[in-house]
């Protein structure tokens, strides 16, 4: 099968000789029939709803995400209580409501990872398109740039960049969450660029592009209307593949104390607190609340991406 058709996910057309409403409708239909996709969507919906309802739950329980309730939540010895009616998932070492903090943590994770991955996709794809299509010196420079960006170790460089964020007086210049988004974008765009470049290199030599050239189409026209629509499915699959990785990246940064700072609830900081104080041995939900939430979110997106891949990229061009 011609390379361009293999890329564009034309399996959805299999056997349909009638007039189809649109390519998009075929794809959505195929996705809804795909088991992994359905399962992934359900899990993600669950997490998203939880994130959205966080303020409502906080209001219902009367516990804010950063409020401490030392008298009601901690025992005389200072140990947090387990799950009760008042604290459905128990409390943490400072007397804060674990359930409320977990739900707010979902907001943090999604609000950082989704924009970062999307931004990385846009930047990386644009660079990959230009680099792959124009070739020559520009391509060589961009490839080397990608190599350089990939060589930097993630956490240490992230910390250095976050330290850059402090003004002369020690106060932060820009909201740390924004800097974390930028850092994650900085470390993800390279994967999109490499992927796109590879795809464009294949398509550049195809009769599809040459036919457009003989009609007299401009370079911009060819890139945007002939090449991009045909590589979009693979790139979208990769977005879904990279997203859970970025969620974990953000959680790891906050676990090490490098990202979102306490007392802001992030799953990473909650898990770090639980481990540092070893209080999870007494109140397991201190650890399990954010732990299970993190696991569900990552697993959900992994399942979703597997489903997307089965429909849009069965030949695994996205690696």
């Amino acid at each position: 099968m011609a390379e361009v058709h293999a890329l564009a996910g034309t399996e959805v057309f299999e056997g349909r000789r009638d007039v189809v409403r649109s390519y998009g409708s075929l794809v959505i239909g195929a996705l809804l029939r795909e088991k992994s996709f359905r399962a992934g969507v359900i899990i993600i919906a669950f997490v998203a709803v939880g994130a959205m309802l966080a303020p409502a739950v906080a209001w219902l329980l009367g516990h804010g995400p950063t409020e401490q309730f030392r008298d009601t939540a901690l025992t005389e010895m200072g140990l947090p209580t387990g799950p009760t009616l008042e604290f459905p998932l128990g409390a943490d070492g400072n007397g804060r409501d674990v359930l409320v903090r977990t739900l707010y943590g979902a907001r943090v994770s999604l609000a950082i990872a989704i924009p970062a991955t999307t931004l990385a996709m846009i930047i990386g794809t644009a660079i990959g398109l230009v680099s792959g299509f124009l070739g020559g010196r520009i391509d060589r420079i961009v490839s080397q740039g990608i190599d350089i960006a990939l060589s930097f170790p993630f956490i240490v460089t992230a910390l250095s960049l976050l330290t850059l964020n402090r003004g002369a007086d020690g106060k932060v210049l820009v909201a740390p969450s924004l800097v974390v988004v930028l850092i994650i974008t900085l470390f993800s765009w390279t994967y999109f660029a490499r992927l796109t470049r590879g795809l464009v290199l294949v398509l550049r030599r195809s009769p599809l592009v040459e036919a457009a050239q003989t009609i007299g189409a401009s370079k911009a026209h060819i890139i945007l209307r002939e090449i991009l629509p045909n590589i979009a499915p693979v790139i979208l699959v990769y977005w879904a593949v990279q997203l859970p990785t970025n969620i974990v990246a953000e959680a790891t940064l906050s676990f090490l104390g490098v990202g979102v700072q306490a007392p802001e609830p992030s799953w990473g900081t909650m898990i770090a607190e639980a481990q540092r104080s070893s209080l999870y041995q007494v109140q397991p939900w201190f650890l399990l609340g954010p732990g299970i939430a993190l696991f569900l979110t990552v697993a959900g997106f992994n399942t979703l991406s597997a489903g997307l891949r089965n429909v849009l990229d069965p030949r695994r061009h996205s690696g």
């Binding site: 190599d147 990939l150 060589s151 170790p153 956490i155 240490v156 250095s160 330290t163 090490l256």
Partner: peptide, 26 residues
Amino acid sequence: LAINSALEGDFPVIIGTTIFAAACFV
């Protein structure tokens, strides 16, 4: 070593570990 130096601000070590990591990668 890297993370502790980064948290402490011991920048010769920060640069050093960054270079080491990059060298391993390359």
